[in-house]
Amino acid sequence: MNKNEGMISCAVGCWLVALLGGVLAAMLLMVLGGWTFMQGVFMGVVVFVVAGALLSWIICKPLPAVGEASVDAAKPEEAPRPAAKSTAPAAAASAATTAEPEIKPSTPLPGEADLAARKGEWKYEAEPKADEKPKAKKAAKKPAAKKKAAEPAAAPGEGTKPETLSAAREGGPDNLKEIKGVGPKLEALLHSMGFYHFDQVAGWGADEVAWVDQNLQGFKGRVSRDDWVAQAKILAEGGETEFSKKVGKGDVY
């Protein structure tokens, strides 16, 4: 009988014992415990399965063969032989002679020649420090700052400042937005400079126009460009221009 047949017969015997135990357990529970037939059969099946599995695992567990056990027992005794110490130089010499030679590829690998030619030429360069980067950014912003200062400054003494008012006359200021080229922002700027009425603008001469053109911050040259004086004369006399009519209808602002 070989090893596998012995394990099969052991397992069959264990399950037969478990079956006998399950039948006895079912009968005892039905006779002595007053259980019903179905309850007794269910409990018998449980006992059969559990007992069969435990007995098969405990009793039929394969044991190491006698030859294997003797080999395993002999393994710890296999210590380095004393003779190996005396023959160590000879063993080292023989190992050196019998060592396999270094294996090199017979065919050059792709890019190997190029890599060998460039070897030693690469040089690591450190990245610029973090505190140096803002300096470069500031240098790049300088030309933009120069472009913003493209608006010409008012020449000192150029033109003559017109007469101004500290506040609008009785009845309130005129709607200076009826002059073409004067928007809400420019009207507010004219008020801050002391100009509230059409007749003020209509009375400007060439020197006054030159002064106002140079002192309208952000709107330099608008007085002469849009001919405010001619428009203001018509509006100061109670007349209307094509532009003032559109403003009165609400088509502009």
Rank of each mutant, 00 (worst) to 15 (best):
Y196H: 12
P152Y: 01
W122A: 14
V209A: 04
I234L: 13
G6P: 01
A188Y: 05
E125M: 03
D72A: 14
L29R: 01
L19V: 05
D251F: 08
V71G: 00
E132M: 03
P89L: 02
A25F: 10
K177I: 13
G171R: 04
E121V: 04
K135L: 03
D226E: 07
K147R: 11
D251R: 03
V252H: 04
E158H: 15
G239E: 07
W57N: 11
G205E: 09
A139C: 01
V247T: 08
Q214L: 12
G181R: 13
G157F: 03
W57L: 11
F195M: 07
E78Y: 08
N2S: 12
G194Y: 01
A154K: 02
L24D: 04
Y196L: 07
S9I: 15
Q217H: 08
V212R: 06
K133N: 10
S86W: 08
L24Q: 00
C14T: 11
E68L: 12
S70G: 07
K85E: 15
Q214F: 04
V71Y: 03
D131L: 13
R222N: 12
L176D: 02
V50D: 00
G250P: 04
E158M: 15
E102M: 13
T36W: 08
A83Y: 05
A53N: 10
K138F: 05
P76I: 04
K119Q: 04
